[in-house]
Design a protein around this nucleic acid. Sequence first.
DNA 1: TTATTACTTGGTTAAAATACCAAGTAACAA
DNA 2: TTGTTACTTGGTATTTTAACCAAGTAATAA
Lengths: 104, 104
Amino acid sequence: MDREIYKQKATIIKAMAHPSRLMMVDALAAGELCVCDLQRLVGADMSTVSKHLSVMKNAGIVTDRKEGLKVFYRLRVPCVMRFFECIDAVLLEQHTSYARMLGE
Amino acid sequence: MDREIYKQKATIIKAMAHPSRLMMVDALAAGELCVCDLQRLVGADMSTVSKHLSVMKNAGIVTDRKEGLKVFYRLRVPCVMRFFECIDAVLLEQHTSYARMLGE
DNA sequence: TTATTACTTGGTTAAAATACCAAGTAACAA
DNA sequence: TTGTTACTTGGTATTTTAACCAAGTAATAA
């Protein structure tokens, strides 16, 4: 059934649909980071950050690797970065029509 | 502040993060459709479909146009379709590692 | 005018997501 | 062993989403 596929796809997209998670993906585009780095980045409780990461891990967006005390996360499917280009296009379009509206 | 930008981006992504909405975007990729078409497609209450569309409209993903009794929606930023390619890559990767796991 | 169609909006209820604190685990250090 | 660091997981309160029904609006038809 098609329904099930759309549900799976929605789960993946939903896993990115949060400001802190987007921020983390953006940072991870440059390479591996430990949870402690990501916590500093988003400035939330460690448990909150950890839960955000597990959402993305379950969705298949990131993987992790333990090294000593630290756990390093990295993007599993780098193409998610191409999302951002399109999102920027949407934001730009919003901005453009807003400017157009003001000009009328 | 960066925070605000990430929040805006999350709003756009969140607007696609629902099975019915994904299904509609997919259908709209082929061209304009009226709310009645989209209702048949997703098979939910008309009011539900209308609200989903307004979420996407507010996010800047679709626009609408009234013609007689019908309201036609279309994608405003076609690049959202490129999302799907990447989502497919994530699903494929999930599938691949699952197969790998079974093989071990 | 009244009726019908195609939508949207308001209201309500149920389900899901999010944040923090507290407690638990795993690796290393003393 | 005991302590510390770096995380994860459980619990709970709050907020956000989502679905349907009912009522409202705009365009057309009779």
